[in-house]
Design a protein around this nucleic acid. Structure first.
Lengths: 343, 343
DNA sequence: TATTAGCACTCCAATCAAATGAGTGCTAAC
DNA sequence: GTTAGCACTCATTTGATTGGAGTGCTAATA
């Protein structure tokens, strides 16, 4: 709200709102008519000229209307978009079916969000770094394979097949199971480091050779954290002419399909924590090059105890920030704790 | 090779081959020059006129060259594309990294295939209907949860969380495990029907109430066959102008993203088995409406014992059928048996 | 009788000019 | 400080023109 002056702000606000609706450059006459400022188009023109000099708006070409610059959008998001904390009553409720496989829940969430917003969406699996081991079991599958089943605190189950030279006898298997459970139980992933492992190898005593193989496999499985990213609604971008020419559409959809690049967004959004938990990247603010003509809004959802994931919406710069941010708030609220009670 | 006559066939062949390369309607003059027929353009014109009457080629508009009709492509694929069984030496080898998670292998295959062909690709997880149960284990996870781990013949592991009212004592658990393994071991999915289950409930005797819950959960888990479909290279369609206008591209990419519709292709391709295992759908021959401007080539891969999956390539009608079919053959060969030796 | 040369005709695609109109910037008056 | 008025700019649309590729048909040819 700095040195802009109230009138300029009102005009900027009007310009941006109008542009968000129409997607067309907006001219002085429109503003003069559709605001309660009672100023002639000429005056508006002067102010617009100023606003342009200050970098808030931009002319696509001489003698066209103005459109917001990245700086303009930024100002709008930071200052003009008052979060009026409106009642969520009229918000479409996110009916999340209670499937047990988290994967399916996430896919579903992405799809619903895409449908209700008409933008492209992404959601990551939660990062379980703070998650603890709850239960481990080794079973002899056949003569040369061992199956390790590991259950983490939030009922995340991991499986690992371990090849063996020769079968283990029952007693060894039992001991191993006891050893694994008693040592690793309640530990979180960062705590399971080399020191822990070598200590266990010591305790294993005479078996230490075979035990080593097993331990390494188990440790690897536990600590390997696959960050899955699910996207949906990629084709929604065709609804916005400014994104739907072959070139841009292709690049955008490619990044959504390939997903790796999206990971940068995630780490960004998880670390830099504003108080609301919602982050807005406008145009070049996004770390992803192909999204320079887009805006990305991300939010963090939390299932308690540092178990966090990211959900994001990708749309044109003139996206409906208000609706999008509300949707994300609502969604993260609902998502929070949905996995707490299993099934 | 019916009543077409050798010369007509040669001309048709030339037209299609030229069109496959250029993507432009091909005129009589081009054919007259680039074939060894030594016929003037006028003669070619007459023949083309005939071919058009017979429905093999089509004029986009008067006074343009001809392009193949669906019927023309069909003839080409059925009769002109002699599978010369060329040495696969010059084929780029599919280097499939040996990750243990099948999911990742499939994703990788789809991606590589898309990259090497420049078309969109899909691949399904194998259908395990004939697969047998190898190992089952129930574990008491905590006071009100049981974990069932089921391993199938091809080392496919399934997990299921079973909610309990009150914990089971050790003996019951042991008995259950024995019962499950002794009864279900070696059974394939279709064999596990209601009769089997109720018989087991009988055998369970006094526990039958609690056993029922567990059995149902296990049976459900085993029989629930999730047909996963992975796609890749959707944005490759932008490389073909005839597919890359907003409308078509959007619809196509949407079907690739949503995937459900692709399932119809799969069942089709698994059932109707030609001797080569390769199926070609040209334009409207495809069961999927949005692909009427595309051709789809599918192949079946088999991991032995009726464990089958489908892999497919989606491209413009003027795709390089020869290369595509070769690639698929090569791929299915490599894929066959890759999961036989675990890890 | 089959093939070919020649020519009129069609139609797409590219090019260009003029007309349109939304919007600006500037100046002079209020 | 605000406004009316006017000249100017420039993307977009429209229509007319042209060029070229290709066909279909007819008449000549082998």
């Amino acid at each position: 709200m700095d040195e802009l002056g109230e009138r300029k702000i009102k005009i900027l606000d009007a310009i941006i709102r109008t542009y968000l609706e129409t997607g067309e450059p907006v001219g002085s006459r429109t503003i003069s008519k559709y605001t309660d400022l009672n100023l002639s188009s000429a005056t508006i023109r002067n102010e617009m000229s100023n606003l342009e000099e200050l970098g808030y708006i931009v002319q696509p070409h001489t003698s066209a209307g103005r459109i917001p610059s990245d700086k303009g959008y930024r100002f709008y998001v930071d200052h003009l978009l008052q979060n009026k904390d409106k009642e969520i009553s009229d918000m479409k409720d996110f009916v999340i079916e209670h499937t047990e496989r988290m994967e399916n829940v996430l896919k579903q969430v992405a799809r619903m969000l895409a449908q209700s917003t008409n933008y492209a969406t992404m959601i990551t699996s939660p990062k379980y770094s703070a998650n603890k081991v709850k239960f481990i079991q080794l079973s002899q599958l056949d003569d040369n394979q061992l199956l390790a089943v590991i259950v983490m605190e939030a009922n995340v189950v991991k499986n690992k097949m371990i090849p063996l030279e020769k079968p283990l006898d029952n007693e060894t298997l039992l001991r191993l199971n006891v050893l694994l459970n008693s040592t690793l139980n309640g530990m979180s992933i960062p705590e399971i480091n080399l020191a822990t492992i070598s200590k266990m190898k010591e305790q294993a005593g005479s078996y230490s050779d075979i035990v080593g193989v097993v331990l390494d496999a188990v440790a690897e499985t536990i600590s390997q954290e696959e960050l899955e990213i699910y996207t949906s609604g990629a084709t929604n971008i065709f609804k916005y002419p400014e994104l739907s020419d072959s070139q841009k559409a292709s690049e955008l959809i490619y990044t959504l399909e390939e997903k790796q690049q999206l990971a940068t967004l995630v780490s960004d959004s998880l670390s830099d924590e504003s108080n609301t938990g919602i982050q807005v990247y406008i145009g070049n603010e996004s770390p992803i090059q192909t999204m320079k003509d887009c805006s990305v809004v991300t939010a963090t959802y939390e299932l308690g105890e540092g178990v966090k994931g990211t959900v994001g919406i990708i749309g044109p710069k003139r996206m409906d920030y208000e609706k999008v941010m509300d949707s994300l708030k609502e969604l993260t609220n609902q998502l929070d704790g949905i996995f707490k009670k299993p099934s």
